[in-house]
């Protein structure tokens, strides 16, 4: 098993921390992981992205150009990464703010309105966990049990009371993920 994932959106949407939680969940599942962020000047007030690789073997190149799964949270990222999804792969995106929706027919597409999901959960900061929930619903890369352990590793002990809120957001995302294309 080897899954190459790109998560891309605006700085502040929690792209990097979602990637970190996914990577840590991978470690909890005894997988090899890499987490490679874009750290160029585009991060400062612009787009941010992170490539996460989960594999049951040692990972060679942390740099890839085709992805098994793309998680897309703004228009610029959709324009840039829709074409990089491998045929038969997954594209998970938040349609709010999107003017040109994904068009490919040879990939699986899932839509998640995570702003609404975060509002339902009662905290806008768990936006990225709603997205993670949608990803795990359609592409269960790691078990929920290991995601919970991963969350425990990523959230500082003094904020551990926030774990149930994050879990609720993931569950909301799982419930509201909408598959809009099957390859």
């Amino acid at each position: 098993m080897k899954e190459e994932i790109i998560i891309a959106g605006f700085g502040g949407q929690g792209v990097l921390s979602m990637g970190k939680i996914l990577a840590y969940s991978g470690i909890m599942q005894d997988l090899e992981v890499t987490w490679m962020p874009s750290y160029g000047p585009e991060m400062r007030g612009g787009t941010a992205n992170v490539c996460v690789i989960l594999s049951d073997k040692k990972i060679g190149s942390p740099i890839v150009t085709k992805y098994d799964t793309a998680v897309i949270l703004n228009q610029q990222s959709l324009d840039k990464f829709e074409k990089t999804v491998k045929p038969g792969g997954w594209l998970i995106y938040d349609p709010s703010g999107i003017t040109r929706h994904p068009e490919r027919k040879d990939i699986n597409i899932c839509s998640i309105n995570a702003i609404e999901g975060a509002a339902r959960t009662g905290n806008s900061k768990v936006y990225n966990m709603v997205v993670l929930g949608a990803l795990l619903k359609v592409n269960p890369l790691v078990t929920l049990e290991n995601v919970e352990k991963g969350l425990g590793k990523c959230i500082p002990a003094r904020y551990s009371s926030l774990i149930p809120l994050n879990k609720a957001a993931i569950e909301d995302g799982m419930e509201h993920a909408e598959i809009i294309n099957r390859a």
Binding site: I27, T34, W35, M36, P37, Y39, I59, P62, I63
Partner: peptide, 10 residues
Amino acid sequence: DGIIGQMMEK
């Protein structure tokens, strides 16, 4: 290099 410095691994 920047990749080895910035990349997270276990």
